[in-house]
């Protein structure tokens, strides 16, 4: 089977595109190692320091686009992820960019740092007898698996109205990391031809879960039909104006699974 993704994002209302503090990355599978395609979304802390760099390091590293490249892709288990996170923290803290930091920026780097909610996913055995997704998560970035008009999996299992303002996340501080590794959640689910996987940061995921309690067919038809960044922006703007979605950076990655592959290649200009 084939899997192909598209990413939509909108920064907080009032902020520029450059101030979007989420991260999203995807990479194809590697036939040489048998590793499947990977997808990751992270949500950097609004009040952190260097949150965008941290969120991007996490997602790029997880899919194999980081500094260590393919050699350092972590397996989806607690111990390999722990080792990978320590390396990722070290690189973030020794970014050459920090040589230009002011006293206040250094102070915030050392006393606050940043953290990010994270969801990473690999599609395993796509061409084999047991195609499935395997995922790791911390915080309230959510994976939705949709089959037809039915939501067949939500990971992590956050209930509607369960999105708080103090979610768990991956920290930049080495000491804090030890405490959160035990909070990593793992899950997996069977993939079928025609399934769609969505990875969404909290504000959008919160809205999705509330909509899902109502007209779910309308919801999933709308999300499956998103075909241009402006349509996504219009959807988010509309929901924000209706006070139905909090003003937060929003990221949605849609991954379609099909035995046939995409019929068209769409380039948005």
């Amino acid at each position: 089977m084939h899997a192909w993704q598209v990413v939509f994002s909108v920064p907080k209302h009032g902020n520029s595109e450059a101030e979007w503090e989420d991260g999203a990355a995807a990479a194809p599978g590697d036939p040489a190692t048998g590793r499947g395609p990977r997808f990751a979304v992270a949500d950097g802390a609004t009040q952190g320091f260097g949150s965008t760099r941290w969120a991007m390091r996490l997602v790029e590293g997880f899919v194999g686009e980081g500094a260590g490249g393919l050699d350092e892709i972590p397996d989806l288990a607690a111990e390999p992820l722990h080792r990978w996170l320590r390396r990722t923290q070290d690189r973030w803290r020794h970014d050459p960019l920090l040589a230009q930091a002011t006293d206040m920026q250094v102070y915030k780097l050392e006393t606050v740092g940043s953290f990010a909610t994270f969801l990473g996913c690999e599609f395993v055995d796509l061409d084999g007898p047991h195609p499935h997704w395997s995922a790791v998560a911390i915080g309230d970035t959510v994976l939705f698996q949709v089959r037809g008009d039915e939501l067949v999996a939500t990971f992590p299992p956050i209930p509607a109205h369960g999105f708080g303002v103090n979610p768990h996340g991956l920290p930049t501080g080495p000491k804090a990391l030890e405490a959160v590794v035990d909070r990593l959640l793992f899950d997996e689910g069977v993939l079928l031809d025609g399934d769609v996987i969505y990875l969404a940061t909290d504000a959008f995921a919160d809205w999705v879960l509330r909509e899902e309690e109502g007209d779910r067919r309308e919801l999933w038809t709308t999300l499956a039909g998103l075909d241009h960044p402006e349509r996504f922006r219009a959807l988010v703007d509309d929901r924000r104006r209706a006070n139905d979605m909090v003003n937060d950076d929003v990221t949605l990655m849609r991954v379609s699974i099909s035995a046939a592959g995409p019929e068209n290649l769409v380039v948005c200009l």
Partner: peptide
Amino acid sequence: MCVKATTEVNAPV
């Protein structure tokens, strides 16, 4: 409050 609004190198509060 200033520290909370400090977000990145080479970026103003």
